[in-house]
């Protein structure tokens, strides 16, 4: 079994899926099933006292999925710590996907505040999975304070721009060196992006918008699962190095035709 382990808990699906932005909760439920995900993320929000809203958890089988609350929407370390504590008080687990994102419209994380909040939460016994930039020094700081994963972005949340800087992610993966799982979170737009993330050696990817906003979310969830699997197999199998010079796949000897003819490459 090719699993990976976060804080002592082993998972076999390397695709984590978010639960936001689906056209409906039944579609979300079916997409989660099609994705094969074991870890699903949720947000923490005030109960709406004015209008009764359908319960998300009515559509998520907690025997089947491990719920990972996030601190999305938190602009400061203090807000994120408070939200994480509330999520834990809801009684599901002490895990939190830590996000500290300034209110500047970029949805890019505040790495300094993220490290600060991570340290507080780790000291309070949380299993902290921090959403971070693709900066390897920040990744090292997060490792130093005891985070359970490193979750660098591929590109900005919801952009679907994929992995424009794969070398930066590769550097983080090398730096972390298997001490904790590296999960590529955000920016993935298509299964090919998820494949690339896995080919780089990431342990898992987290996808929300690319599935939820696809024309057919359920089919895309399946496609994303296959993309992750293909990329993982490719990583394990060991891809060939890139070379400058072409080399034929077919034998260059034993050709019919004239002895004097020059050898032509490739067929």
């Amino acid at each position: 079994m090719d699993g990976f382990t976060i804080a002592g808990r082993t998972f076999t699906s390397r695709l984590m899926v978010g639960t936001g932005k689906y056209p409906s909760l039944p579609v979300m439920r079916d997409a989660l099933a099609a994705s094969g995900a074991e870890i699903v993320t949720v947000a923490v929000r005030r109960v709406n006292l004015e209008a009764r809203e359908e319960s998300l958890l009515a559509y998520i089988n907690l025997d089947k999925y491990f719920l990972l609350p996030n601190t999305a929407g938190c602009h400061t370390a203090d807000e994120a710590v408070r939200t994480a504590r509330l999520a834990r008080a809801a009684g599901l687990s002490n895990w939190v996907k830590l996000e500290v994102i300034p209110d500047d419209g970029t949805l890019l994380p505040d790495p300094v505040a993220t490290v600060e909040a991570a340290e507080i939460l780790v000291n309070e016994g949380f299993v902290v999975l921090p959403y971070t930039t693709d900066d390897h020094t920040v990744a090292r700081r997060l490792l130093d304070v005891g985070c359970a994963t490193i979750m660098p972005f591929g590109s900005a949340i919801g952009t679907g721009q994929g992995l424009p800087n794969p070398e930066r992610l590769r550097r983080i993966i090398e730096l972390v060196d298997g001490r904790v799982p590296v999960v590529i979170d955000a920016g993935i737009g298509a299964p090919s992006d998820a494949s690339l993330a896995m080919e780089l050696g990431a342990d898992a990817v987290l996808v929300n918008t690319a599935i939820a906003k696809a024309t057919n979310p359920v089919q895309m969830a399946r496609a994303m699962a296959l993309g992750v699997q293909a990329g993982r197999f490719s990583y394990l199998a060991g891809r060939i190095p890139r070379t400058e010079v072409a080399s034929p796949s077919s034998p260059e000897t034993g050709l019919i035709a004239k002895e004097s003819a020059p050898t032509t490459a490739k067929a």
Partner: peptide, 26 residues
């Protein structure tokens, strides 16, 4: 509050409460 404390936590005039739940998110 821990869920087990709901029954014993008494509310007084002017108190402020936040009640949250899980919603869809990434």
């Amino acid at each position: 509050l821990e869920p087990g404390d709901f029954a014993t936590a008494t509310i007084e005039e002017g108190d402020t409460l936040e009640i949250v739940r899980f919603v869809g998110g990434g």
